[in-house]
Computed example of a mutant assay.
Amino acid sequence: MKIRLLTLLFTVLMLVAQSAAAQQGNSSMRSYQLGVGDKIYINVFGEDDLSLETRLPDIGIINYPFLGEIKLVGMTLSEVEKLIYEGLKGDYLINPSVAVTVVEYRPFFIDGEVKQPGGYPYQPGLSVNKAVALAGGYTERASRSDIQVVREQNGKPVSMEVEVGALIQPGDVITIPQRFF
């Protein structure tokens, strides 16, 4: 009886921990800024002609029906929804229902002391350690400290030192340094 109770308690604690981790990951993605290479889906409920799936090109500008060219790079999903809502409201639709989702994130890149450096598809919740695993693992000379991540913030690259458990974002460039004996 005690074993069943402990098992049940353990299961509940694990579910609570997983839920908290998922919420933390989701909240960081709410402020996610779109970048070149992201594939998004814009859905205007009941208006198939205004729904669109597109990959953001190098210039970060898409041509949207009725609104023309709009620059989306650097905007959050809610900002894009508001921009399209405001653009369509009144002249074209009375109260448009707009939803924007990321279909596919831009890749992240990893170089340095990993077995297969290069670009890989981003997945939400990806840590440095998981990114290294995707790149074939650490080389025998890899350091697991002094890891550098270059991330674009407000249009400028920012370099930061991170731990192996740090979460990465789409477009990040991870550098695994060589350790010295």
Rank of each mutant, 00 (worst) to 15 (best):
D49I: 10
A166Q: 06
S28I: 13
A99D: 10
I94H: 05
Q169Y: 09
G68P: 00
S145V: 13
V132R: 00
L67W: 00
S19L: 12
E104G: 08
L88H: 00
P170I: 08
T139G: 07
R106H: 02
D146V: 02
L93R: 00
L34I: 07
Q18T: 11
K82W: 04
R30T: 11
K130A: 14
I84G: 05
I59V: 11
Y138D: 05
A135K: 00
F109R: 08
K156W: 08
L5K: 09
N43E: 12
L83S: 05
N63V: 04
G46Y: 04
E140R: 14
N26W: 11
M29P: 02
F45V: 13
E81G: 02
G137C: 06
A20M: 05
Q169P: 04
G60C: 03
V102L: 03
N95F: 11
Q33N: 11
P124Y: 01
S143I: 03
E140A: 15
T7G: 15
G90N: 06
R55G: 12
K2D: 14
I176G: 03
E163H: 09
E140H: 08
V150S: 09
Y32S: 09
D38L: 04
D58F: 06
V128S: 04
A133L: 10
R151S: 10
A22Q: 12
Q18H: 13
L13Y: 03
V12R: 00
D49L: 12
T7N: 11
L77W: 00
L88E: 05
L67H: 00
P117V: 02
V149N: 03
M14I: 15
G46F: 05
